[in-house]
């Protein structure tokens, strides 16, 4: 089953098979369906890499919410992607504590070595997207970088090329 939307795209449902089971397992943990929204969005992002219009409508439907409501929530939280991103998503902390330890140089190194060129852009080979993020909560391990779900500490510009080797 697939549903068409105003955007014109055709959406293949996310909540089928094991993902559906994961969703169902969430319901007993909260007294309201609405409360399952954040974890449900995480399930979508884990399955698809980002949250498309179609997926957003699907989430709204399974939780009994309106798409507008869901969109208001999705856009509040910066970790949910509302656009496709590179295969590997790189987030470099550049808030003050890391900033004074050279975080901006680390960002530049990532932009250079990935070929992304600029923040938020995806590299021509589709491999990487690099962004700056606010405090990752690891200031004593400057500069922390989150690559997909891998939290890498103490990154220096010199280490960047080596780190990227692990992400094809």
């Amino acid at each position: 089953m697939s549903t068409a939307h105003a955007a014109g795209e055709t959406h293949q449902p996310v909540f089928v098979g094991p993902t559906r089971a994961q969703l169902e397992a969430l319901f007993p943990k909260y007294p309201t369906k609405q409360s399952v929204l954040l974890p449900a969005l995480w399930l979508v992002q884990e399955a698809r890499g980002w949250i498309s219009e179609g997926a957003l409508h699907e989430v709204a439907e399974v939780l009994g919410l309106t798409p507008a409501y869901v969109k208001g929530v999705v856009t509040f939280y910066t970790m949910y992607h509302t656009h496709p991103v590179g295969r590997h998503f790189i987030q470099v902390c550049t808030t003050s504590p890391c900033n004074i330890c050279g975080a901006e140089e680390v960002t530049k190194a990532f932009l250079r070595h990935t070929g992304c060129g600029e923040l938020g852009a995806t590299s021509p080979d589709g491999r990487f997207t690099v962004i700056e993020v606010e405090c990752l909560g690891a200031c004593g391990f400057a500069t922390p970088v989150l690559i997909d779900d891998d939290f890498v500490e103490g990154v220096t510009p010199e280490r960047v090329a080596g780190i990227l080797q692990g992400y094809k």
């Binding site: 955007a7 309106t66 798409p67 507008a68 969109k71 208001g72 856009t75």
Partner: peptide, 22 residues
Amino acid sequence: GAPVLNVSERGDRAYIGIDQDQ
């Protein structure tokens, strides 16, 4: 009882949003 409007985004980027299907 028809929440078709939302506040989208945060900070001074925020605006009132709507879904084109509703």
